[in-house]
Amino acid sequence: MGIGSIAVFLLFFAWPSQASEAEPALEDLFSAVNGSVVLVRTRERALVGNNNVGVVPFTDQGSGVLISEDGDVLTAAHLVQVADTVQVEFGDGTKVLAKIVSSEPAADLAMLRLERVPEGAVIAKMGNSDAVRVGQRIFVIGAPYGLSHTLTVGRISARRLPGTLGGPLALAEFFQADVAINRGNSGGPMFDMNGEVVGIVSHILSQSGAFEGVGFSVTSNSIRQLLLTPRTPWSGISVFGLDEKLAGIFNLPQDSGVLVQRVAAGSPGARLGLQPSYLPAKIGEHDILLGGDIILEVDGFQVGKFESYIALRDHLAEIEVGQTVAVKVFRQGRVIELTTTIEE
Rank of each mutant, 00 (worst) to 15 (best):
F306L: 14
V263G: 02
P233L: 10
T229A: 14
S277W: 06
V325E: 11
P268W: 07
Q275F: 06
A311G: 00
L272R: 10
T324P: 08
L312C: 06
E318K: 15
G322W: 07
V329A: 00
S256C: 05
G257V: 01
Y278G: 01
P276G: 08
L228S: 06
A264Y: 03
I288Y: 10
V321G: 01
E307R: 12
I283Q: 05
E285S: 15
T324N: 14
L316C: 01
L279M: 14
A281N: 07
R262Y: 11
V329T: 04
K282I: 13
A247F: 08
D255L: 13
D255S: 15
T229V: 06
P280W: 04
D243N: 15
A326P: 05
S308N: 15
G304V: 00
S235K: 11
H315R: 08
L272E: 09
I288S: 02
F301D: 04
I237S: 07
R231K: 14
V239S: 04
D299A: 12
L289V: 04
V239Q: 03
P276R: 14
P230T: 04
A326W: 12
L274E: 01
G236T: 09
Y278P: 03
G300K: 06
A270E: 14
D293Q: 03
P268E: 06
K245I: 12
G273Q: 03
Y309P: 00
L274Y: 09
R262P: 00
D314K: 13
F306N: 06
D299S: 12
R271G: 01
V298K: 06
A270G: 07
I294F: 05
S308P: 04
N251V: 06
P280L: 05
R313L: 02
H315Q: 03
F330C: 02
Q323W: 02
L296S: 02
L252A: 10
Q302I: 11
F330K: 06
T324E: 15
R231Y: 02
L316K: 03
A265N: 14
L274M: 03
E285H: 11
L259P: 04
R313K: 13
W234E: 11
I295S: 01
E297P: 01
D314F: 02
A326F: 13
S238L: 01
G273N: 00
L272P: 03
S308D: 15
F240A: 11
I295F: 01
E307K: 13
P233G: 13
I294T: 13
D299E: 09
S235A: 15
V327N: 02
N251M: 13
H286Q: 15
E244C: 02
L279I: 12
V298E: 08
V327D: 00
D243G: 11
E285V: 12
A317W: 01
E285L: 13
D243K: 11
L279F: 11
P253Y: 12
P276H: 10
L228K: 09
R231D: 00
T229I: 07
S238I: 00
G273D: 02
P280D: 08
A317M: 09
G291Y: 05
Q261R: 03
G284K: 07
G292A: 09
Q275I: 13
